[in-house]
């Protein structure tokens, strides 16, 4: 039974750092996609047009009811079958982005619905159209009220990004596995990777707290 040899971390930390860089890129892109994608999905879910609402509802139900890993498999293995060839990194971004767009849309939809009815009435009674009223009055309030919940989703995204290592994206977890394949010391490297994730998580939470304070409506 081997025991622990922490010196391997000092030798191999460049590999982990490289993985960390890719994780940051991966997460930044996925977060952006999930936020941008969440808005139309949220609006589609409360559309008065059944042809828009039902497919949206089905899509949300499907992607909320199945694991991210399964969805990643669908994208990574399924798209080539219909002629779309994406790199693991792009597949990973797409998978994470779509999955969390769905979760974000739920949060945003709740925020939109929670905006007092009177706001809607006031803007409509001034003559604003439904779309203008949504854009200028409802959405700004909805989005700032759900910032904390969205923040939680982003933190969850960061942690679930480890899954894309399974579809061979060269991020932090896969880098740890590369180091392990050379040193046969899984405990040290997975532990180190965990510590690095913990660190990024910590900074992300700090950043989100600052954003929350800035966008709070109670001035």
């Amino acid at each position: 039974m081997p025991g622990l040899k922490l010196s391997v971390l000092i030798e191999y930390y460049p590999i982990l750092l490289e993985g960390l860089l890719w994780t940051c890129i991966l997460c930044a892109a996925s977060i952006a996609l999930s936020l941008v994608g969440g808005v139309p999905l949220a609006l589609a879910g409360i559309s008065r047009n059944r042809l828009v609402r039902w497919p949206c509802g089905f899509f949300v139900w499907l992607f909320r009811g199945t694991p991210l890993l399964l969805q990643l498999f669908l994208i990574y293995f399924g798209l080539p079958q219909i002629g779309i060839y994406l790199s693991p990194m792009v597949s990973g971004i797409l998978g994470l982005g779509i999955h969390y767009a769905v979760y974000n849309s739920d949060v945003m939809r709740a925020g939109i619905v929670a905006v007092e009815r009177g706001q809607h009435e006031a803007s409509r009674s001034l003559g604003l159209s439904r779309a203008q009223s949504m854009r200028k009055v409802i959405l700004p309030q909805a989005l700032s009220s759900v910032t904390p919940a969205l923040g939680n989703n982003l933190i969850a995204l960061l942690k679930e990004s480890a899954l894309v290592s399974i579809i061979t994206v060269p991020e932090l977890t896969l880098s740890a596995q590369r180091a392990i394949s050379e040193t046969f010391r899984p405990f040290e490297f997975y532990f180190a990777a965990g510590a690095i994730y913990y660190g990024i998580n910590y900074f992300l939470e700090l950043g989100l707290k600052r954003v929350e304070m800035k966008t709070a409506l109670s001035r």
Binding site: G118, Q119, A122, R124, S125, L126, G127, Q141
Partner: peptide, 24 residues
């Protein structure tokens, strides 16, 4: 109808019991 109602509402001003000012 949407276009019509938006236009006609500009000719009517409404003040509500709970103000409904835009807080942001």
């Amino acid at each position: 109808f949407e276009k019509h109602i938006n236009r006609i509402r500009q000719d009517m001003g409404m003040v509500f019991q709970h103000f409904n000012l835009f807080p942001h």
